[in-house]
Design a protein around this nucleic acid. Sequence first.
RNA 1: GUGGGUAUAGCUCAGUUGGUUAGAGCACUGGUUUGUGGUACCAGGGGCCGUGGGUUCAAAUCCCAUUAUCCACCCCA
Length: 458
Amino acid sequence: MSKPSIPKGTRDFGPRAMARRQWVCSTIRGVFERHGFLPVETPSFENLKTLTGKYGEEGDKLIFRILNNGDYLSKANAEALISKDSKLLTPTISKKALRYDLTVPFARFVVMNRNELTFPFRRYQIQPVWRGDRPGKGRYQEFTQCDADIIGSTSALCELDLVQVFSEALDALGVPGYTVLINDRRILAAVALSMGVGADRLTDWTVAVDKYDKVGVEGVVKELEVRGFDHDVASGIEKLFEINSASNSLDVLSNIASVISSNSEGMKGVSDMRTLLSRATADGIDAPKIKFDAMLARGLDYYTGAIFEVRVADSPVGSICGGGRYDDLTGIFGWSGMSGVGISFGVDRIEDVLTHFNKFPDALDLTTDVLVMYMNEKNCDVELQLVSQLRSQGLAVEMYPDPVKLKKQMKYAGDRDIPFVVMIGDAERTAGKVTLKNMSDGSQELLLTTEVFKYVSS
RNA sequence: GUGGGUAUAGCUCAGUUGGUUAGAGCACUGGUUUGUGGUACCAGGGGCCGUGGGUUCAAAUCCCAUUAUCCACCCCA
């Protein structure tokens, strides 16, 4: 017995899920467009070289590679093949890979199209991405991201713009109890330095710190020790945690500032964060919707300035949005000095959250407005004419394709939640009229074909 | 990658200390009702009991292996 199946970490989306997902995407798209972002799409797969080395060591492992076509083994590295060295073998048999996110392909796009684009360039992109992660709650191997990026400006107004997008979109979606967490990689680096963590160990350190919300302070301390940091560094975390637990974001920033006051880059971060918070407040975006979190680190390698993450209280899944500033992502593709900042909404996790809290609006499901019954096998001209007429008036109309028993056609309309049914039997045909049945209350009216639209649309 | 659970109809699941014809609900088809859905009643179709081996007179049931899947850990938007 071979039942069909789909790969783990992937899902089919039926009409109901699609109605919800399309609503989520179009809501976000609307906000993007009101902020002047322009749409872009890129291929689902890229040259492997475009993607590798951008997501950190762990991230690179999760990139789905595409096997070369043809007799790929003939060109494989023979030595690697014999010694079963996958790491060495892979680049010789795979030259393409599925995109891991939308930001890196966008950076590649910007470099390739630099002459046609007007900067600062704002683009949005809504497409699926793929990660070879172990699937779990809220984690899929294929999922859809809605990205908005502004590239070609270092202004802190860009960060404000994106924070506004977060707030407007999440409010419009009705996501309950969300918080936009913000931090700055420069602050993180300065704090680490003040504890004696050099730039070379910074990634290691941030990865450990990032786990704080999962494992708590003791967990992070333990993690740091496992990673070979000395005791002073580990105990420094306890102090950082204490600073971070102040209730007011500005207080946290002040305390941080006193720790890193001698670090000019770090202080620049602090001042940018202060500006961002006060401008957001002026725009009505305040705690608990936005919060500075000194422990927020995020995994991706390419962030250099502000970083964002959106979490939902009591959520069944992890963060639903992420983002940050990357100062030189285009530099890797040969064009330096293009600072960008972007955010990403996770459609799938937003769907999970709204489903979990039962917050989807009612009546998202699309259905046909009118079903025309097929009653007279010999002649259905009148029916087809009515169908065309109602469609041209803007209604969604279908005719039952087979002249089967009315009971069956009626059940079909009921199962599909079609609100109106038109019957044209011998009696109606003779009278030059049609019967319109309202499926919700069962009432029926004898009408001229020209009157149907008015009844249905009222 | 580690530990634990699960695998029986399209779906959700029962199935006794191993015992002869493997059940229910939902869904589906037909009927009660030849021009009327949702309710009710009646009838019907549908199963290699995940796969392979073993124990036994006898296995859905016990044992071993294997695969898939779920949960936790690990890791990670």
